[in-house]
Design a protein around this nucleic acid. Sequence first.
RNA 1: GGGGGCGUAGCUCAGUCGGUUAGAGCGCUGCCCUGUCACGGCAGAGGUCGCGGGUUCGAGUCCCGUCGCUCCCGCCA
Length: 474
Amino acid sequence: MNPNHSSPRTRQFAHRSSPSPNGDGSHGRKATPWIGWQPVERTFINELPRRVGEPVTVRGWVQTVRDQKSMQFLIVRDETGLAQAVLPKQDPPSELNEAVSALTAESAVTVTGTAVADERVKLGGLELKLEGLQVDSLAEPEVPIAADSALDKRIDWRYLDLRRPDRRLIFAVQTTAEHAMRELWRGEGFIELHTPKLMSSASESGAELFHVDYFDGDAYLAQSPQFYKQMAMAAGFGKVFEVGPVFRANPSFTSRHDTEFTSVDVEISWIDSHDDVMAFEERWLAHVLTRVKEAHGEAIAETFGVELIVPTVPFPRVSLEDAKQMLRDAGHEAPGAGHDLDPPSERALSALIKEQQGHEFAFVTDYPTTVRPFYHMRHPDDPTLTRSFDLLWRGIELTTGAQREHRYEQLLAQAADKHVDVDPIQYYLNFFRFGAPPHGGFGFGLTRLLMQMLGQENVREVTLLYRGPHRLEP
RNA sequence: GGGGGCGUAGCUCAGUCGGUUAGAGCGCUGCCCUGUCACGGCAGAGGUCGCGGGUUCGAGUCCCGUCGCUCCCGCCA
C-alpha cells in the first residue's frame, strides 16, 4: 500500500498523546480493577426483560455517557442491543461515580447491577441499577469515523464501522443465506468442494490473473474453480458446490467489482441442456430468499428500507437477441449482434421485465460464441450460439452459467476455433478423455447477491474486508 | 486502460466576483445542570485549505503538474 494512504492514521495516533483519565496514558491498553460488585454469569441485553429484579452482568461497549450533576447514565451496547445503566451521584463522588465519569465512548466494559423495570426509560422500559464496573479496555476519546463517514474512510476503520448494528445485520443475512444454500444442496446430495487457489495457468474466466512467485517458478491465483468443478464431474461426483474466494486482477473501478470476492459455484452432471441448470438455480435462489425473508425480512425493511420479494419460479427467460429487440422496441439503445449487454442495457432490461412480467429476476440465454469461453457447449442447430445464460437481478449480473462441452474432440475443436493455447491446460482437457458425463453449472457472486438483497450501492458495504486495486488493508 | 466528479478542523460540510483574522454542525476538553434518553447551557482547544509549481499587490478560490478518493465505461460475478 502506498505510504500516503497510511499516513493519516499514523498522524492521528501521534496526536493522541493527551493524558488518559487514569493519568498514565493507558488508553486501550489494560483493564482497570473491579469497582463494586463482582460479575455473575453474563446476560445478553436482549434477555434483560426476563431478568428484572435479578442481579446481572452485561458486557459490551459504551455507547453514550450522560454525566449529570446528580445522576449518571451509561448506555451499553452488546451484539443483541442497547441498555441503560443508571447511577446516582454521591457527594463527594464515589469511586464508581469517578469511574463512570472517566469512561469514553466505545470503551469495552463489564457492568453489574440489578435489572429493574422503569417506565421513564425510553430504551425498553428497563435499566440496570449500576453496582459494579470494570473497564476491560478504555477507548481513546474521539473515534475516527462517524455513521455518515465516507465509505473509504469507514473501511480504513472497518472494525469500528462494523460495531454498528446495521452493519452487523449484513453479515447475519449472509450467514442465513449461505446456510439456506447449503440446506438445499445437502438435501439434494451435492458434494462440497475445496479446490486449490494456486494454479499453473488461467482457468479461462476471461479475467486478468494475479501472478505469484512459486519456489523457482510461477503460479497464478485462481479466477474461478471452473476447471476443478468439471474435474469433479469427470470423477463422478454428480453434483457439487463450492463457496470460496476467487481472484481477479482487473483494474476495475466500479461499485460492483473487487479483486478478491466470494464466489458460489455449482456444477451438475447428466443434464440435457442449460435449461436444467437454470431450473436448479431458480429453485435454489427462491429457497435462499425465502429463508432470508423469514429470518430477516422485517429487519432488512426497517434498516435498509428494502422489501425482499421471494421470486416465483420459473424466472423469465429471454434470449440475448430477443432481449436486445425488447430494448429497441421500448426505445432503448442496445448493443449490436455478437456483443453482450452493457450495464445500462442490463438495467433497462431488468426494468422492462419487471414492468412487463412483474419479475425482478431474468435469465438471458444463448450468448454468441464470440463472448463466451471455448468450453461452453454450442447449439447443435446453430454453432454460433452457446448453451449459456446470465442471471440478472434488479439490473445487476449475478451469474454466468452454461452447459459445458464434455466431448473431447469437440472441445479440442472449439479451443482451436477460439485460438486457445491448449498446452498449459492439457490437464484440464484430459478430464474428458475417459468418459465424462454431460454437465453444466454456474458461478454466482455472493457479494452481488447481498448488495442487491440489502439495497446497497457498493459491494464494499457487504464485504467484510474489501480488496481492490488500491486496497490491501486492513 | 478511457472519461467525469471531489480533496477545507477528528467526522460531515459551507466558503459569493480573487481581498484583510477561514466558518458551521457533530465530536473532543473544562465548567454548570435533580431521571437523562439525539439531554441541555456556557466557555475552550483544534486548520501546511491533499502536495508541488505558476499567475497576481493579494490565491482555499484562477492556471499547470502530481497524489489520493469516488462514480461511469471497458472487463466480469
